[in-house]
């Protein structure tokens, strides 16, 4: 009840500030500089950007919000791209960066030219930029905490990692291992690289399975849970508790298992719609509002209860997604 009242009050406040925002940023131009578009997550990210920003442009919140993607995932190319965006006189540049450090030169030039820079997902370390970071370590820790809740007796875990040598893979894995150390009932019996792809994960898991004892849980990084399930089924071994990563094929498989035998698990990942969160943060900064320089993105968790709904809203081959509205963004900013 209290909550409702609060929401009513904040909605009123929002209506007032939103009115002001339309007056303040309607002539502003915000560009997206993106380093890579080669997987389903990035495609969904660009689609979300397009959907939310075109609505914002139509409503007159901002004048323009085009997206630019570099041809190959290269620092030098993206730095040149950012410089070109500076030249074109954009008021804000939203960046998904190819490197945390190597774009700092171009980002500093943008800041010096009076441009608001907001980085997300692939963040930049230049102090003048805003950062919307993902706590990948927490993503690893949450998985083990969930397993500890579901499997109080513990047992052997299989870890499926991402692409070797990539920052994200190191972080998630570090989080998983930290939390496993805190739970004496779990041991990681084996670890393979699934490269965030179902086919690679399936092959890797099938390769290591014969050498493993009984596995009670599989910790993953997203994009690999379905492949792991297939490998267990093909080897004729009982399906362990596999943490999923919000991909359509993973959710579909989970739904089938749930209907057939009441299989229960957790799915979590970052919603590609985080690009729209970055867009609204840029808009809020242009609007003159106080936004902290460092924000953390909430995870998108799918549970047994929300599975059907999430599955219905996810496109085949895609990733479960949420897009942020200006109000959602204000909530995220307020929580940080």
């Amino acid at each position: 009840m209290l909550n409702k009242k609060l929401m009513g009050a904040s909605a009123l406040a929002l209506a007032l500030t939103a009115g002001a925002a339309i007056a303040d940023t309607s002539d502003k131009r915000i560009a997206l500089s993106n380093n890579y578009a080669g997987n389903s997550w990035r495609q969904a990210m660009l689609q979300s950007w397009e959907k939310v920003t075109s609505a914002a442009v139509a409503e007159g919140v901002v004048a323009e919000a085009p997206a630019f993607t570099t041809a190959e995932n290269q620092v030098t190319e993206q730095a040149a791209q950012i410089q070109n965006l500076i030249l074109q006189g954009y008021d804000a540049i939203v960046i998904n960066s190819a490197s945390p450090d190597a774009l700092n030169g171009a980002v500093k030039q943008a800041c010096d030219a009076g441009i608001v820079v907001v980085s997300f997902d692939g963040i930049v370390t230049e102090p003048c930029a805003y950062r919307i970071a993902v706590d990948f370590k927490e993503m690893g820790r949450l998985q083990v905490q969930y397993l500890a809740e579901r499997l109080p007796d513990g047992g052997n875990l299989l870890e499926i990692r991402g692409l070797a040598g990539v920052f994200v893979d190191n972080e998630i894995s570090a989080g998983i291992n930290e939390e496993v150390d805190n739970h004496a009932q779990f041991q990681i019996a084996g670890s393979v690289h699934g490269d965030w792809a179902q086919d690679v994960a399936q092959k890797a898991v099938a390769g290591i399975l014969p050498s493993l004892p009984e596995i009670v849980g599989v910790v993953t990084q997203g994009g690999d849970g379905y492949g792991a399930a297939q490998a267990f089924a093909a080897a004729g071994r009982p399906t362990p508790l596999i943490v999923m990563g919000n991909r359509y094929d993973e959710l579909l498989w989970w739904k089938e298992q749930k209907d057939a035998n009441g299989y229960e698990t957790l799915s979590l990942s970052i919603a590609p719609g985080v690009s729209t969160l970055a867009f609204w943060v840029a808009q809020m900064v242009l609007d003159g509002q106080d936004v902290p320089q460092d924000l953390t993105v909430p995870f998108l968790q799918i549970t047994q209860d929300t599975l059907e709904e999430s599955l219905a809203n996810t496109q085949p081959g895609g990733v479960a997604n949420v897009e942020y509205s200006r109000e959602d963004t204000m909530d995220v900013v307020a929580e940080n």
């Binding site: 190959e72 290269q74 620092v75 030098t76 190319e77 730095a79 490197s99 450090d101 190597a102 774009l103 700092n104 030169g105 171009a106 500093k108």
Partner: peptide, 15 residues
């Protein structure tokens, strides 16, 4: 190149 980027990356010049 690093004079411009101010930091490096082993893959910075692959192209």
């Amino acid at each position: 190149l690093i004079g411009l980027t101010s930091a490096a990356d082993a893959h910075i010049a692959d192209r």
